[in-house]
Simulated scan of single mutants.
Amino acid sequence: MTPRDASSSSSDSRWSDLGRPPLNVGSLRRALVREGSLWTGVDVVQRTGSTNSDLVARAVAGAVGEGAVLVAEEQTAGRGRLDRQWTAPPRSGLFFSVLLRPAEVPVARWGWLPLLTGVAVATGLSRAAGVDTALKWPNDLLVSVGGEERKAGGILAEAAGDGGVVVGVGLNVTLRAEELPVPAAGSLALAGAVGTDRDPLLRAVLRSLETWYGRWRAAGGDPLVSGLQEAYVAGCATLGRTVRAELPGERAVVGEAVAVDGDGRLVIATEEGVREPVGAGDIVHLRPA
Protein backbone atom coordinates (compact mmCIF):
# COMPACT_ATOMS: atom_id res chain seq x y z
CA MET A 1 0.00 0.00 0.00
CA THR A 2 1.31 3.44 -0.86
CA PRO A 3 1.55 5.65 2.26
CA ARG A 4 -0.73 8.68 2.20
CA ASP A 5 -0.42 11.98 3.98
CA ALA A 6 -2.74 12.15 6.99
CA SER A 7 -3.93 15.56 5.80
CA SER A 8 -5.20 14.11 2.51
CA SER A 9 -8.86 13.53 1.71
CA SER A 10 -10.69 11.49 4.33
CA SER A 11 -11.78 7.90 4.01
CA ASP A 12 -14.25 5.86 6.00
CA SER A 13 -11.45 4.13 7.91
CA ARG A 14 -9.94 7.39 9.16
CA TRP A 15 -12.85 7.98 11.52
CA SER A 16 -13.83 4.39 12.25
CA ASP A 17 -12.79 4.90 15.88
CA LEU A 18 -13.92 8.35 17.04
CA GLY A 19 -11.89 7.98 20.22
CA ARG A 20 -8.75 7.86 18.10
CA PRO A 21 -8.77 10.86 15.74
CA PRO A 22 -6.00 11.23 13.16
CA LEU A 23 -3.00 13.43 13.75
CA ASN A 24 -3.18 16.97 12.40
CA VAL A 25 -0.09 17.19 10.19
CA GLY A 26 -0.60 20.89 9.44
CA SER A 27 -0.71 21.77 13.12
CA LEU A 28 2.35 19.65 13.84
CA ARG A 29 4.35 21.34 11.08
CA ARG A 30 3.38 24.82 12.24
CA ALA A 31 4.40 23.99 15.82
CA LEU A 32 7.66 22.18 15.11
CA VAL A 33 9.14 23.31 11.79
CA ARG A 34 10.32 26.84 12.38
CA GLU A 35 13.46 28.92 11.92
CA GLY A 36 16.24 27.71 14.20
CA SER A 37 14.49 24.45 15.04
CA LEU A 38 16.10 21.04 14.74
CA TRP A 39 13.00 19.77 12.96
CA THR A 40 13.09 20.47 9.24
CA GLY A 41 10.07 18.50 8.08
CA VAL A 42 7.20 16.44 9.44
CA ASP A 43 5.42 13.85 7.30
CA VAL A 44 2.49 11.73 8.48
CA VAL A 45 1.45 8.62 6.58
CA GLN A 46 -1.67 6.59 7.17
CA ARG A 47 -0.03 3.18 7.01
CA THR A 48 3.41 1.76 6.38
CA GLY A 49 5.59 -1.18 7.28
CA SER A 50 8.20 0.62 9.36
CA THR A 51 8.92 4.32 9.74
CA ASN A 52 12.55 3.46 10.51
CA SER A 53 12.98 1.51 7.28
CA ASP A 54 11.25 4.23 5.27
CA LEU A 55 13.27 7.08 6.77
CA VAL A 56 16.57 5.19 6.39
CA ALA A 57 15.74 4.70 2.70
CA ARG A 58 14.93 8.40 2.29
CA ALA A 59 18.15 9.40 4.05
CA VAL A 60 20.32 7.08 1.96
CA ALA A 61 18.70 8.45 -1.19
CA GLY A 62 19.45 12.01 -0.09
CA ALA A 63 15.77 12.90 -0.06
CA VAL A 64 15.77 14.29 3.50
CA GLY A 65 18.19 16.04 5.82
CA GLU A 66 18.76 16.15 9.54
CA GLY A 67 15.62 16.88 11.48
CA ALA A 68 13.25 14.98 9.20
CA VAL A 69 10.38 13.37 11.12
CA LEU A 70 8.25 10.54 9.74
CA VAL A 71 5.12 9.49 11.62
CA ALA A 72 2.75 6.62 10.83
CA GLU A 73 -0.82 6.25 12.01
CA GLU A 74 -0.32 2.50 11.70
CA GLN A 75 2.76 0.31 11.35
CA THR A 76 2.39 -3.20 9.96
CA ALA A 77 6.02 -4.27 10.35
CA GLY A 78 7.34 -2.14 13.19
CA ARG A 79 10.55 -3.52 14.67
CA GLY A 80 12.10 -3.51 18.09
CA ARG A 81 15.48 -4.78 19.19
CA LEU A 82 16.46 -8.29 18.07
CA ASP A 83 13.98 -7.91 15.16
CA ARG A 84 10.97 -8.28 17.44
CA GLN A 85 7.67 -7.20 15.90
CA TRP A 86 5.78 -4.13 17.16
CA THR A 87 2.12 -3.92 16.14
CA ALA A 88 -0.84 -1.93 17.44
CA PRO A 89 -4.27 -0.80 16.19
CA PRO A 90 -4.36 2.27 13.92
CA ARG A 91 -4.02 5.62 15.71
CA SER A 92 -3.61 3.92 19.10
CA GLY A 93 -0.08 5.21 19.64
CA LEU A 94 2.83 7.29 18.45
CA PHE A 95 5.00 5.53 15.88
CA PHE A 96 7.66 7.83 14.49
CA SER A 97 11.29 8.11 13.40
CA VAL A 98 13.71 11.04 13.23
CA LEU A 99 16.92 11.56 11.27
CA LEU A 100 19.91 12.88 13.22
CA ARG A 101 23.40 13.73 11.95
CA PRO A 102 25.59 14.51 14.99
CA ALA A 103 28.70 15.41 13.01
CA GLU A 104 30.28 17.25 15.97
CA VAL A 105 30.11 14.14 18.14
CA PRO A 106 32.70 11.32 17.97
CA VAL A 107 31.12 8.15 16.58
CA ALA A 108 32.17 6.31 19.75
CA ARG A 109 29.57 8.36 21.65
CA TRP A 110 26.67 7.76 19.27
CA GLY A 111 25.65 4.78 21.36
CA TRP A 112 24.10 7.30 23.73
CA LEU A 113 21.44 8.29 21.18
CA PRO A 114 18.87 5.61 22.14
CA LEU A 115 19.41 6.41 25.83
CA LEU A 116 19.13 10.13 25.11
CA THR A 117 15.87 9.50 23.29
CA GLY A 118 14.56 7.54 26.26
CA VAL A 119 15.31 10.44 28.59
CA ALA A 120 13.67 12.87 26.17
CA VAL A 121 10.52 10.77 25.78
CA ALA A 122 10.18 10.27 29.54
CA THR A 123 10.65 13.99 30.17
CA GLY A 124 8.14 15.00 27.50
CA LEU A 125 5.50 12.52 28.68
CA SER A 126 5.87 13.59 32.30
CA ARG A 127 4.95 17.13 31.29
CA ALA A 128 2.29 16.43 28.67
CA ALA A 129 0.62 13.26 29.94
CA GLY A 130 1.28 13.42 33.67
CA VAL A 131 2.69 9.89 33.58
CA ASP A 132 5.94 8.79 35.18
CA THR A 133 7.84 6.76 32.61
CA ALA A 134 10.78 4.67 33.76
CA LEU A 135 13.58 3.45 31.49
CA LYS A 136 14.62 -0.17 31.20
CA TRP A 137 18.17 -0.38 29.85
CA PRO A 138 18.81 0.14 27.06
CA ASN A 139 15.65 1.21 25.25
CA ASP A 140 12.33 0.21 26.81
CA LEU A 141 9.79 2.69 28.20
CA LEU A 142 7.96 1.43 31.28
CA VAL A 143 4.78 2.62 32.99
CA SER A 144 2.91 1.42 36.07
CA VAL A 145 -0.49 -0.20 35.53
CA GLY A 146 -2.27 -1.25 38.72
CA GLY A 147 1.04 -1.20 40.57
CA GLU A 148 2.62 -3.50 37.99
CA GLU A 149 5.51 -2.54 35.73
CA ARG A 150 4.50 -2.69 32.05
CA LYS A 151 6.28 -1.94 28.78
CA ALA A 152 4.55 0.89 26.93
CA GLY A 153 7.16 1.69 24.32
CA GLY A 154 10.55 1.10 22.81
CA ILE A 155 13.34 2.80 20.90
CA LEU A 156 15.41 1.56 17.97
CA ALA A 157 18.41 3.35 16.42
CA GLU A 158 19.80 2.41 12.99
CA ALA A 159 22.60 3.75 10.84
CA ALA A 160 21.35 5.76 7.87
CA GLY A 161 24.55 6.09 5.85
CA ASP A 162 26.86 9.09 5.44
CA GLY A 163 26.94 10.04 9.11
CA GLY A 164 23.24 9.69 9.77
CA VAL A 165 21.28 7.86 12.45
CA VAL A 166 17.56 7.16 12.37
CA VAL A 167 15.98 6.81 15.80
CA GLY A 168 12.52 5.27 15.95
CA VAL A 169 10.03 5.41 18.80
CA GLY A 170 6.97 3.26 19.32
CA LEU A 171 4.65 4.25 22.16
CA ASN A 172 1.27 2.81 23.15
CA VAL A 173 -1.05 5.71 23.98
CA THR A 174 -4.70 4.58 24.02
CA LEU A 175 -4.25 0.83 23.81
CA ARG A 176 -7.03 -0.88 25.80
CA ALA A 177 -6.62 -3.90 28.04
CA GLU A 178 -8.28 -6.23 25.54
CA GLU A 179 -5.94 -4.99 22.80
CA LEU A 180 -2.67 -5.72 24.60
CA PRO A 181 -0.45 -8.02 22.52
CA VAL A 182 1.00 -9.62 25.67
CA PRO A 183 0.07 -9.33 29.38
CA ALA A 184 3.30 -7.44 30.13
CA ALA A 185 2.38 -4.60 27.75
CA GLY A 186 0.86 -1.31 28.83
CA SER A 187 -0.19 2.10 27.54
CA LEU A 188 -0.42 5.67 28.73
CA ALA A 189 -4.20 5.36 29.06
CA LEU A 190 -3.94 2.25 31.22
CA ALA A 191 -1.33 4.05 33.34
CA GLY A 192 -3.80 6.84 34.09
CA ALA A 193 -2.53 9.57 31.78
CA VAL A 194 -4.27 12.91 32.24
CA GLY A 195 -4.15 13.46 28.48
CA THR A 196 -3.98 11.06 25.54
CA ASP A 197 -4.37 13.53 22.65
CA ARG A 198 -1.51 12.43 20.42
CA ASP A 199 -0.85 15.85 18.84
CA PRO A 200 0.32 17.59 22.04
CA LEU A 201 2.07 14.41 23.17
CA LEU A 202 4.11 14.22 19.97
CA ARG A 203 4.93 17.93 20.12
CA ALA A 204 6.10 17.59 23.73
CA VAL A 205 8.27 14.56 23.00
CA LEU A 206 9.91 16.11 19.93
CA ARG A 207 10.58 19.39 21.73
CA SER A 208 12.14 17.47 24.61
CA LEU A 209 14.24 15.47 22.15
CA GLU A 210 15.39 18.68 20.46
CA THR A 211 16.48 20.08 23.83
CA TRP A 212 18.38 17.00 24.97
CA TYR A 213 19.99 16.42 21.58
CA GLY A 214 21.12 20.03 21.39
CA ARG A 215 22.61 19.87 24.88
CA TRP A 216 24.41 16.59 24.15
CA ARG A 217 25.70 17.77 20.77
CA ALA A 218 26.95 21.07 22.22
CA ALA A 219 28.94 19.05 24.77
CA GLY A 220 30.57 17.01 22.01
CA GLY A 221 28.53 14.01 23.10
CA ASP A 222 30.00 14.02 26.60
CA PRO A 223 27.31 12.36 28.76
CA LEU A 224 28.57 13.97 31.96
CA VAL A 225 28.95 17.54 30.72
CA SER A 226 25.55 17.44 29.00
CA GLY A 227 23.84 16.02 32.10
CA LEU A 228 22.59 13.07 30.08
CA GLN A 229 24.25 10.34 32.12
CA GLU A 230 22.88 11.74 35.38
CA ALA A 231 19.38 12.07 33.95
CA TYR A 232 19.42 8.55 32.53
CA VAL A 233 20.62 7.02 35.79
CA ALA A 234 17.91 8.91 37.71
CA GLY A 235 15.18 7.47 35.51
CA CYS A 236 16.56 3.97 34.95
CA ALA A 237 14.44 1.22 36.50
CA THR A 238 17.12 -1.39 35.82
CA LEU A 239 19.71 -0.07 38.27
CA GLY A 240 19.70 -1.66 41.70
CA ARG A 241 17.97 -4.79 40.48
CA THR A 242 19.09 -8.34 39.97
CA VAL A 243 19.10 -8.91 36.23
CA ARG A 244 20.00 -11.49 33.65
CA ALA A 245 21.80 -10.21 30.57
CA GLU A 246 21.32 -12.51 27.59
CA LEU A 247 24.32 -11.80 25.40
CA PRO A 248 25.33 -12.63 21.84
CA GLY A 249 26.73 -16.13 21.50
CA GLU A 250 24.11 -17.60 23.85
CA ARG A 251 26.00 -16.38 26.92
CA ALA A 252 24.25 -14.99 29.98
CA VAL A 253 25.39 -12.87 32.92
CA VAL A 254 23.43 -12.70 36.16
CA GLY A 255 24.03 -10.10 38.85
CA GLU A 256 23.07 -6.69 40.18
CA ALA A 257 22.88 -3.78 37.74
CA VAL A 258 25.03 -1.23 39.54
CA ALA A 259 25.85 1.51 37.02
CA VAL A 260 25.62 2.93 33.53
CA ASP A 261 29.16 3.81 32.47
CA GLY A 262 30.48 6.63 30.32
CA ASP A 263 29.90 4.61 27.16
CA GLY A 264 26.26 3.96 28.01
CA ARG A 265 26.92 0.34 28.94
CA LEU A 266 25.13 -1.40 31.81
CA VAL A 267 27.57 -2.55 34.49
CA ILE A 268 26.58 -5.81 36.20
CA ALA A 269 28.18 -6.97 39.44
CA THR A 270 28.19 -10.77 39.55
CA GLU A 271 28.29 -13.03 42.60
CA GLU A 272 31.89 -13.81 41.72
CA GLY A 273 32.81 -10.18 42.37
CA VAL A 274 33.27 -9.29 38.70
CA ARG A 275 31.92 -6.04 37.29
CA GLU A 276 31.00 -6.74 33.69
CA PRO A 277 29.98 -3.92 31.32
CA VAL A 278 27.28 -4.96 28.86
CA GLY A 279 26.99 -2.96 25.65
CA ALA A 280 24.48 -5.13 23.81
CA GLY A 281 22.07 -7.76 24.99
CA ASP A 282 18.60 -8.50 26.28
CA ILE A 283 18.04 -7.59 29.92
CA VAL A 284 15.56 -9.44 32.11
CA HIS A 285 14.56 -7.92 35.45
CA LEU A 286 14.63 -10.77 37.99
CA ARG A 287 13.44 -8.87 41.06
CA PRO A 288 12.21 -5.38 42.02
CA ALA A 289 14.69 -2.72 43.09
Rank of each mutant, 00 (worst) to 15 (best):
Met1Val: 15
Met1Trp: 08
Ser7Arg: 13
Arg20Ala: 09
Arg30Phe: 13
Arg30Lys: 15
Arg30Asn: 13
Leu32Ser: 09
Gly36Glu: 06
Gly36Ala: 09
Trp39Tyr: 00
Val45Trp: 07
Val45Cys: 09
Ser50Trp: 02
Thr51Val: 11
Ser53Lys: 15
Val60Arg: 15
Gly62His: 05
Ala63Leu: 14
Gly65Tyr: 07
Ala68His: 05
Ala68Met: 12
Arg79Glu: 08
Gln85Asn: 07
Pro89Val: 10
Ser92Cys: 13
Ser97Trp: 01
Pro106Tyr: 06
Gly111Thr: 08
Pro114Cys: 04
Leu115Asn: 02
Val119Ala: 03
Val121Cys: 00
Leu125Gly: 01
Ala128Gly: 04
Ala128Met: 00
Pro138Leu: 13
Asp140Pro: 09
Glu149Val: 09
Arg150Ile: 01
Lys151Gln: 11
Leu156His: 05
Leu156Ser: 09
Leu156Asp: 02
Leu171Arg: 07
Asn172Lys: 02
Thr174His: 03
Arg176Gly: 14
Pro183Ala: 08
Ala184Arg: 13
Ala184Cys: 04
Ala185Val: 09
Leu190Gly: 03
Val194Tyr: 00
Ser208Asn: 06
Ala219Phe: 05
Gly220Trp: 08
Gly221Met: 08
Cys236Tyr: 05
Glu246His: 15
Ala252His: 12
Ala259Pro: 11
Ala259Met: 00
Gly262Thr: 11
Ile268Tyr: 03
Thr270Gly: 07
Glu272Ala: 14
Val274Asp: 15
Pro288Gly: 06
Ala289Arg: 15
